[in-house]
Every structure is written in C-alpha cells, then in structure tokens.
Design a protein around this nucleic acid. Structure first.
Lengths: 216, 216
DNA sequence: TAAAAAATTTAGACTAATCTAAAAAAATAA
DNA sequence: TTATTTTTTTAGATTAGTCTAAATTTTTTA
C-alpha cells in the first residue's frame, strides 16, 4: 500500500494533468501547500515506484498504475461526499475536508459495499462524476457559464471551485446542481452574466461564471 | 489534535487499565506490537501533554483528559463497527480491522450524525457498549461462561476476544450475541463446558468459555 | 539479603516527510 | 545571444516514530 502523502501527491498530479499534459513541480507544491524541494523528493520516490513519469525539470504525469491509484482515491472521495450529504444530511459546502480524510481508508470492499448501499450514484454533491469500481466514468461535456452566449438554456451541473464560501454563495443565489437556467444578458463592461433561474433573475460576476458549469 | 500513534497508545492504555490499576510498559508494547523502548519514548510525550500519569518504572494510567480522548476513539470504533454490520452487511468477524482505521477520522460532528443516522445504538456487533457523545455508557455486569455454575441460564452478550477465528467458530456453533443458553454440564477433567443452545447441545473448551460473556 | 532474572529506560541510529538555503538549469527579455 | 529572472534540484537539517543494544532499576528467588 501507499502512504497518505503518496496518495495525496498522486491525486494532485491527476487533477493537474486532467486536461493538460504535465504537472510542474511548482504547481504540485502550491496545490499541496508544500515547498518545491519537498515535491522533488517525493517525485523521485513515486518515479522509483513507477507511479509517475518523471524527467528532471520537465514535470510529471501519471503512469497507468499511478492513474489507477489516483482514480481509486477520487472514487472514495466522491462516494464519501455523497454519503455525507445524502445519508448524514451534511450540506454540500461542509463535506470536502471530511472526505479528504475519509478517502484514505484503504479497504476496496468497504467502498464497493458503500457504493451498493447508496445505489451506485454517478455524481457527487458537486456534480463531479464518480468513477466505478474499474475507474471508469462518463465525462459529459460541461461548459463554464462564462463560455455561453446570450439566450442559451442549460442545467447547472458542476462547479470548478469547491470552497465553502463559493458553495454558500451559490446556495444563497439558488444556483445549485440541477437548476435550469437561461443566460439573459452579458455585461460588456465587466463580463458579468445575468441569469434567469426559476422565477427570478440574478447577476453573477465573471469570476463566478467561470466556476459554474452547465450542461446545454 | 493528536497523532494516530498517540491515539492508539491512549486506547491501548484505556483497555489495559479498564479493570486493574496501571498498565506496564511491556503490556503496552505487546498490545501495540512494538518494542518497550518505543513505548517509553511515547509515554514521556503523553505525560508531557498531561494525558497520562507516568512515573518511570511504575507503569501508567490515563488522566481525565486522556480518558476522554480514549473514550472518543472507542465510541468511533464501535459506531463504525455497527455501521459496517448493520448498513453494509459485513459479518461481525470482518469489521475489527476496518474500524481500527475508521476510528481515527477526526470529526466529532460526523460521528454524532452517524450515531443519529443509526438510531443511537447502545452496543456494537460484539456486544461492547457504545459510549454516548459525553463518553458515558452502561456497564452491565457480564460474566465469562467459565465462571457460571451448572443449570444457570443466561443470554450471550459479549466476547473477550475479537479475533475473526474466534468469532467464526462462535458462528459455526451458533453461539452469537443474543442467544439464550443454559450451562448443563462442566467437565471436571479439562473444565470444558456443555451448553444448551436452542434445540442442541454443544461442548466448548475452557478457553472458549473464558472468552464468551453472558448476562444472567 | 545477595544474586539472578525480568522489566524498563537510555543512547544512538534509521526512515519518511518535511524545511531552508544554495546551486544549477531553463525560460525570458533586453 | 548574453544577462536576468524563474523554476527546479541538491545539500544538509529537523521532527515523529520506530528500532537495537547497553545500562539501569525492580522483582524474584534461593
């Protein structure tokens, strides 16, 4: 098995390389709140274990076995988040740090039984897809609201930022997962977006629009 | 917060001093599968934190704040065991090691919500009492079967050994928590005990009788 | 109660993960 | 294309928890 620190590095590298190609030492350091020199040390260790491809100064990406481990951790994280919200009635802005701890419980059988217990959910409370026990999940195309044109409709389906302050703001504006919305105006001056949700209209900043994802 | 190692030491000391007075360095070492010298180091650290009373060469016991932490961990352990058996359909012989890992998840709120979700159970799957959120629990008097006289009746209510081999043996003999039994004979030669359970009679060794607890 | 045995502590070393400071490599800019 | 800046790595130290071996204290036994 891998240590807690190793698991956190693999998960960070997974997320940093989800779209692009390689993760840099500094990117990893900042996403784990650690120093670049610590990252270098760990990269050597993970490379020795054949979990990452590492060329000094060139950044890293996951090998198939590293990716498998990362997906296992992400699966656990998202299933625990679902459990916390659906069974224990936590709010979606309260579960991230808890799941961060629970994702390191090692048993595969436990997580598979938890999955079954909850009826094999496909998405966590923030709209992120939950990998199945083989690490597979559907990546439906989501767009940030900032990338959508006027008069388009869609369903809020994900967030790019999981901080509780952002999620609490969305709650207050009633912009939560599953809401049908329409983009009614885009302010030229500061790129704010005016959104029709249910019976009311709200105006959200470019920053918010960038971090709120919809399915068209 | 305390480290994982500290929590394990506090829990071990709690169990070793549950009945008697002080836990010795060697007792702690053997219950944690570590060396006496490692234990001495940790005892100093726990004493510095005022979690144990430690006089060199004299063994240790918990201070009130150490006991509070130990009871918190035991509460978590037993609630997770209950969850694993009642909600995820694990067998009672499969949950100990899993709960050993889960008991270190730190959130109080999580465990209190889990407690509520399950309806505030009072005993775990092995019959051990679950401390409430203030660390209180009832200690009903249980006796090992080896301490009971012929013709006495009782209900199997606990075990002193949590190993899966012992629990699997009890399953096979249909000697599980809640079973009504009667002691029908005690073999003088080797202190085996003959027990009436349901419609059949089984003979159990002194060793087993020592580790199986009943309420009279 | 002195000698032997057992239990405990001390001394010194090791590993994993981290850090700061300095050196080296790569990227950027003049 | 040389100098400057940024990024990354190396060197050496630190902390928590552990270990082995030696020293010390306590307990047991004769």
């Amino acid at each position: 098995m891998n240590t807690l620190a190793e698991e956190n590095y693999l998960k960070a590298i997974y997320h940093l390389t989800e779209n692009d190609g390689n993760a840099s030492t500094n990117q990893i350091a900042s996403s784990l709140n650690t120093k670049a020199s610590s990252v270098t040390d760990m990269l050597k260790k993970l490379a020795d274990k054949a979990l990452i491809n590492y060329t000094p100064y060139q950044g890293v990406n996951l090998t198939p076995s590293g990716e498998k481990i990362a997906l296992g951790i992400i699966r656990k994280h998202r299933l625990w988040e679902y459990f916390l919200v659906e069974k224990l009635n936590f709010k979606w802005d309260q579960v991230h740090d808890l799941a961060e701890e629970m994702e390191h419980i090692s048993s595969e059988e436990l997580i598979d039984r938890l999955d079954q217990f909850m009826g094999y959910p496909t998405h966590d409370p923030h709209g992120d897809p939950i990998p199945d026990c083989n690490g597979r999940f559907n990546t439906h195309e989501l767009k940030p609201i900032s990338a959508v044109t006027i008069n388009q409709c869609g369903v809020i389906s994900g967030v790019r930022n999981h901080s509780s302050s952002f999620l609490q703001y969305l709650d207050k504006q009633q912009l939560t997962i599953g809401c049908k919305i329409m983009i009614t105006d885009i302010i030229e001056y500061d790129h704010s977006v005016v959104v029709q949700t249910g019976n009311k209209e709200v105006q959200i900043s470019r920053e918010v629009a960038n971090n709120l994802l919809i399915a068209l």
